[in-house]
Simulated scan of single mutants.
Amino acid sequence: MADPYSILGVSKGADEKAIKSAYRKLAKELHPDRNQDNPKAAERFAEVTHAYDLLSDPQKRGQYDRGEIDENGQPRSPFGAGFGGGSPFSAGGQRPGQGGFEFGGGIDLGDIFDGLFGGGAGARPGGPRPQPGPPPKGANIAYEHLVAFTDAAKLEPQRITLRDGKTVEFKLPAGAVSGQQIRIPGKGAAGPGGNGDAMVTLKIGKHPFYERDGDNIRLELPISLKEAIKGAKVKVPTIDGAVMLSVPAGAQSGTTMRIKGRGFAKKGGERGDQLVTLHIRLPSDMAALATLAEALPDEPGIRSDLGV
């Protein structure tokens, strides 16, 4: 066997910490559980462990440094040959690959291997090999799906066509938003451990006159000047159908009214509201409007809040 310092890649003056660190690194690379198809790695593993066995024992290391024992831990003969010699790879009477690795000297490798390969007994020399994991599933397949604004609000069931031409139905989550991903299990690519999943990225469509505001829906509602002055019951569209809204007399443009429960579905089963903002639209008959304007009083302080 070669010089144990050379085997571990450390200098003769290396301290215990450096020797242990060098051994941990090599043991991690060469451990039989990670090199089942490489017998040379197993031999090398035995060699570095034997070297660590010698150098980690202060008494043995001192004897070796003084030339009293050789690389195999055997007393040196005055004629340069060891007594009994023995293979550096068969301490304890075993060869690598035959029933695991056993090393003389009573060295405790527990502190070396604990945590090196996950901690358990399967990580130590001669221990049971870790069981192989389950076969991998197939890859996930990504899709994009456009959801109609009203469908998203009411959580209408959706259908998507998969890569293989088949269609599948899925449910929308409460509060669904653009960019959110839905997982459809088992609808991805095939694999030895089963199919992967379909990963559907949602895109919520726009609406001609509704606008989303969190869980609420906003609507700008035009009303006539007469409706604003006298008050009226007006028909208002919602995603669930038209409803009647009472506009109070003297309503101002920009006034926002609330219709409960006509917004987006929330987590827990409730729904947001529809927020209706009134916008007064002047009549198109300019002559009638001019006559009305003459009858109305001036309001000189109408912009006083603006400081003008």
Rank of each mutant, 00 (worst) to 15 (best):
T238C: 00
R61V: 15
G100A: 06
F45G: 04
G100K: 14
A142V: 05
P58S: 01
I69Q: 04
E102I: 13
I259V: 12
R61Q: 12
K17V: 13
L278K: 07
K40N: 14
G133C: 00
D164S: 00
Y210E: 06
R303Q: 08
G263V: 00
G13M: 10
P125G: 02
Q59R: 15
P88Q: 05
V177P: 07
P32I: 03
I7K: 01
N72M: 07
G119C: 00
P157M: 00
V147K: 09
R95V: 08
G67T: 08
V48W: 01
Q180S: 09
A293E: 13
R303C: 05
P130M: 09
R262E: 04
A232V: 05
T167P: 04
Q63L: 13
A249N: 12
Q36A: 12
R61H: 11
V243K: 14
T167D: 15
K206W: 03
R163V: 14
L245Q: 14
A249Q: 04
E299R: 08
R212D: 00
K187V: 11
A14S: 03
L146F: 08
G231I: 11
Q180Y: 06
G73N: 06
S77T: 14
F113G: 02
A142M: 03
D3H: 09
Y210V: 03
P130A: 10
G196D: 10
G120L: 06
A293H: 11
F101V: 12
F209I: 09
K235R: 09
R271E: 04
L55F: 11
I217S: 02
R303P: 03
M199I: 11
F209Y: 07
Q63R: 14
Y143E: 03
A228F: 05
V234H: 10
I141F: 04
I7N: 00
G196P: 08
M257S: 11
L219Q: 03
A288T: 03
G86Y: 02
K203L: 11
D215Y: 06
T161N: 15
G261P: 09
Q158S: 05
L55P: 13
G13D: 12
E299K: 13
K203G: 15
A42H: 14
I19H: 09
K12W: 03
